[in-house]
């Protein structure tokens, strides 16, 4: 007789490591995006380096680099935490703080404030 799996059963509970890796990597990716956007806006040499696709300007380099760093971090953390249970509270706090920082760093008036414009 087929039975419905009981997903609330703690014995079937998957370790949270893979999820934690994805969450922290997303936070780091968001934070890096904010930092690189600020750096590219503030430092002409950085802006020049990030002209990956000249028609799209430094946006192409800022976003491509952020996505690559996000995926590499995710891959690394995932290998490290797979099959393990980790303390998610500090990881969540760090990821959400990085996300908030990233969002703030892309807000032009805040960028201008940091750059002293």
């Amino acid at each position: 007789m087929a039975t419905t799996p009981n997903f609330h059963n703690e014995t079937l509970r998957r370790p949270n490591g893979s999820g934690a890796a994805a969450i922290l990597a997303a936070g780091i990716g968001a934070g890096v995006l904010g930092i690189l956007a600020l750096a590219s806006d503030a430092i002409p040499a950085v802006n020049h380096v990030f002209q990956f696709a000249p028609a799209s300007g430094d946006l192409s380099g800022v976003t491509t680099t952020s996505v690559i760093i996000w995926l590499l971090v995710w891959f690394g953390l995932s290998r490290h935490w797979r099959g393990r249970d980790v303390n998610l509270l500090p990881i969540n706090l760090a990821a959400l703080a990085l996300l908030a920082a990233g969002l703030l760093l892309t807000f032009p008036p805040f960028m201008d404030l940091l750059e002293g414009k």
């Binding site: 997903f7 609330h8 703690e10 079937l12 509970r13 998957r14 949270n16 893979s18 999820g19 934690a20 994805a22 969450i23 997303a26 998610l88 509270l89 990881i91 969540n92 990821a95 959400l96 996300l99």
Partner: peptide
């Protein structure tokens, strides 16, 4: 996709998913 209905067992995962 990784956790499916099991996400109900992981309050912190659920909070992060909703936050993002």
């Amino acid at each position: 996709i990784k956790y499916g209905p099991q996400i109900a067992l992981h309050r912190q995962l659920r909070n992060a998913v909703l936050g993002f």
